[in-house]
């Protein structure tokens, strides 16, 4: 047989990215490449700089130094602004960066209340990003809302209910529907299963895996839960005190950790 194509095109690249609030606080000298179709997990303890790095990568916080490069495949946006090839995230104007976030990327917050409008209906929450892309047809927006509620296993009959009447797990699934409805290329997730009951976590993990496969998503996932990382991520980066101490295939990191800190982290996990 022939060797299959092993190289995948790069989608996002961090080059020497630093964002420090103080010594060891934030993230420092981060270099990595995310390839198309990959789920990259960023793991580490609280305060290791995971969330700061995610904010910088997702366009929410300008780094002190370094570059975040995104290889866009969209030839033309709805606003007629054509862009293809490599984009330097922080060299773009504010408007272009926001347009990128809206059109090609998605961000799932740890707390669904940060990513949802709690007072407006579930359907309106899902439709909002579509409307931002120019969809105005009420019937189509509503159909997309019902379709996506079904995909994330929410009862489509509740499309007119406000998310504040939903449980935490339901809100998280609604946030994911709202984010994925526009078919983003790249999704950033900050502890997507944090704070949920384990039964709900399992449902959500299964759903995320299925969506990654079906939609060909690339994902950067921040989590402190190594069990979640094992099931969702293809590749891991381990962070400690703002720096990446080790990276590799998920099972390499968890089954044959090299760095002293990774060994400590992995051996400290309780397995039921």
């Amino acid at each position: 047989m022939k060797c299959p194509e092993l190289q995948r095109p790069a989608l996002l690249e961090a080059r020497g990215v630093s964002r420090l609030y103080g010594p060891g606080k934030g993230c420092e000298a981060i270099d990595f490449t995310l390839h198309r179709g990959e789920v990259l997990g960023i793991v580490g303890e609280s305060g290791s700089g995971k969330s700061t790095l995610l904010r910088v990568l997702s366009g929410l916080e300008r780094p002190d130094t370094g570059q975040v490069a995104y290889r866009s495949t969209v030839a033309q946006g709805h606003d007629g602004a054509g862009h293809e090839g490599e984009l330097d995230l922080y060299a773009l104007g504010e408007a272009r960066r926001r347009a990128l976030l809206r059109m090609e990327w998605g961000l799932v917050h740890q707390n669904p209340r940060d990513g949802l409008r709690l007072g407006v209906s579930a359907g309106a929450n899902i439709g909002e990003r579509l409307m931002a892309l120019g969809e105005r047809h009420y019937g189509q927006l509503r159909a997309a809302g019902q379709d996506w509620m079904g995909r994330v296993e929410l009862d489509p009959k509740r499309i007119d209910d406000a998310p504040k009447t939903f449980s935490g797990g339901m809100q998280q699934r609604l946030q994911i529907a709202r984010t994925l409805v526009t078919r983003p290329n790249l999704v950033f997730m900050d502890e997507p299963t944090g704070g949920l009951d384990v039964s709900v976590q399992a449902r959500l993990l299964d759903m995320l895996r299925t969506l990654v496969r079906e939609l060909g998503l690339s994902v950067i996932l921040v989590t402190h839960d190594l069990a979640v990382a094992r099931l969702l991520a293809h590749r891991l980066m381990v962070m400690r005190r703002g720096q990446v101490v080790e990276s590799g295939l998920t099972d390499q990191i968890l089954d044959d950790p090299q760095h002293a800190y990774t060994q400590l982290l992995v051996s400290s996990v309780l397995t039921p």
């Binding site: 299959p4 092993l6 190289q7 995948r8 399992a202 993990l205 299964d206 590749r235």
Partner: peptide
């Protein structure tokens, strides 16, 4: 690391001693 994704999908299969899957 990223080259292993395709290699495991298309070339190298592995039957481990224990089944490790998403719970539900």
């Amino acid at each position: 690391a990223h080259a292993w994704h395709s290699l495991r999908r298309d070339v190298i299969g592995y039957v481990s001693q224990f089944l490790r899957v998403v719970p539900r």
